[in-house]
Nucleic acid binder design. Structure first.
Lengths: 156, 156
DNA sequence: GGCAGGTCTAACGCCTACGTCAAGGTTATA
DNA sequence: TATAACCTTGACGTAGGCGTTAGACCTGCC
């Protein structure tokens, strides 16, 4: 009788593994970014590995794209729809419903894609500029060195 | 007698041209992100073109790097030091002082550079993943279409 | 010199994304 | 069965980044 369902995790472990606080996990749940996890009899939250992934995903979107949690909710909601789409893969019910969901998902992902692209372009520009500046600095540094050789520091 | 100094701008124009509010401009000044601009006799702020550039620079750092204004202050402070370095380009006074300033500037710019690089790497990953997903969506879309052909929508 | 429209400072407000108690219930282990 | 370690739900607090309002002042123009 193997209790092989999933190695469920308590909130503390999830917090440790994801690097966020327990408060943040409850907060995300409150805001609908994480679906309410299952519970032990006593009320303790039990998270799955999928939840852990979801959290790291959220953090990446926050950090990389710098978008608000409300927008991130849109994105993860779309993901959730996709899970459902993939799960109920019976071609029986609601094909047009599925099409609508799929189109919504495409929309969201494409929006995300555009943000990523724009960011990358702008970052590329910025990178070039920074490289320019670093080169300038090296030149200056060389010039300063020559000046120091000619006129050694006072007190030396 | 040409009054050719600089076409100085009032706060409203700067706000319009940079896309930030007047409040934001005063706020940045308060926080040391913008040096106190000159004033008209009556007290109205008079900004230069350099100030406009500074503002757009600040916004880019905010938007692209997502760093706090305090950190941005460090960056723009370094820039200011460089202006000074470039301005007083007499090799007379304080060579070692200049070296220190230059090294500080290099430090700041390199830090910024690393942030940019990391962001770009992560964004690149994310981009690949998004492309994968879009391909998957296209496949699904095709499958759905075939299903719809076989079993036309109810009500048609 | 009077009016419209722009600007000034000061001060309080607000939203986001959590931090930080407090008081009490749960679980595992000895 | 008791005790340490963990978790629960409130509820208030906070930091950053401005928004908004009030009341007064300036500027340009007729």
């Amino acid at each position: 009788m193997p209790e092989r369902t999933d190695p469920y995790l308590q909130i503390g472990e999830v917090a440790e593994r994801t690097g966020v606080t327990q408060r943040t996990l409850r907060f995300y749940e409150e805001k609908g970014l994480l679906k309410p996890p299952s519970r032990m009899d006593g009320g303790f939250r039990l998270y799955s590995e999928a939840d852990v992934k979801r959290v790291t995903q959220i953090r990446r979107l926050q950090d990389l794209l710098g978008v608000a949690l409300a927008d991130i909710k849109e994105m993860v909601d779309a993901e959730e729809m996709l899970r459902e789409l993939r799960a109920q893969y019976d071609p029986e019910s609601g094909i047009s419903e599925k099409r609508r969901q799929l189109e919504k998902a495409i929309e969201v992902v494409e929006a995300q894609y555009k943000i990523v692209q724009q960011k990358m372009e702008h970052l590329h520009e910025m990178k070039s500029q920074l490289e320019e500046r670093l080169k300038t600095f090296e030149r200056w540094s060389g010039e300063l060195e020559r000046l120091e050789d000619k006129a050694p520091v006072a007190g030396a």
